[in-house]
Amino acid sequence: MTKRTTAKYKIDRRMGENIWGRAKSPVNRREYGPGQHGQRRKQKISDFGLQLRAKQKLKGYYGDLTEKQFRRIFGEAERVRGDTGENLIGLLERRLDALVYRAKFVPTIFAARQFVNHGHVTVNGQKVNIPSYRVKEGDVIEVREKSKQMGLVLEAVALAEREVPDYIEADHSKMKATFVRTPGFGDVPYPVQMEPNLVIEYYAQN
Results as ranks from 00 to 15, higher is better:
131 P>V: 07
109 I>P: 00
84 T>F: 10
83 D>Y: 12
36 Q>H: 14
180 V>I: 15
194 M>V: 09
18 N>R: 11
129 N>M: 06
154 L>Y: 01
133 Y>H: 12
175 M>C: 08
77 A>F: 07
76 E>D: 08
163 E>I: 06
190 Y>W: 11
4 R>G: 04
17 E>L: 10
197 N>I: 09
132 S>P: 06
175 M>W: 04
129 N>G: 07
1 M>I: 09
149 Q>R: 15
119 G>S: 10
102 R>N: 01
182 T>Q: 06
28 N>I: 09
10 K>F: 12
3 K>W: 14
8 K>T: 07
170 A>N: 06
166 D>M: 09
8 K>Q: 12
82 G>P: 12
82 G>N: 13
18 N>V: 05
142 E>H: 05
46 S>Q: 12
199 V>R: 00
176 K>E: 15
49 G>L: 13
48 F>C: 04
101 Y>F: 14
190 Y>G: 02
34 P>G: 08
171 D>P: 07
5 T>L: 05
140 V>Q: 10
159 L>S: 04
193 Q>Y: 09
165 P>L: 06
191 P>V: 00
46 S>T: 15
138 G>A: 07
149 Q>I: 13
151 G>W: 15
57 K>D: 00
143 V>Q: 02
171 D>F: 11
60 G>E: 03
61 Y>F: 15
166 D>H: 13
38 G>Y: 14
41 R>A: 15
58 L>S: 03
9 Y>T: 05
126 Q>W: 10
115 F>N: 00
187 D>N: 08
181 R>S: 13
90 G>Y: 02
133 Y>T: 01
39 Q>V: 14
51 Q>Y: 13
81 R>W: 05
131 P>N: 07
88 L>S: 05
119 G>I: 09
163 E>P: 00
145 E>K: 08
99 L>A: 07
155 E>A: 09
72 R>F: 15
182 T>Y: 09
41 R>N: 11
177 A>I: 00
183 P>S: 09
47 D>N: 14
68 K>L: 14
42 K>H: 13
93 E>K: 02
193 Q>T: 13
153 V>I: 11
134 R>D: 05
146 K>T: 10
112 A>G: 02
67 E>H: 06
93 E>G: 01
156 A>M: 02
7 A>E: 11
150 M>K: 12
198 L>Q: 11
41 R>M: 15
52 L>N: 09
76 E>K: 10
78 E>G: 05
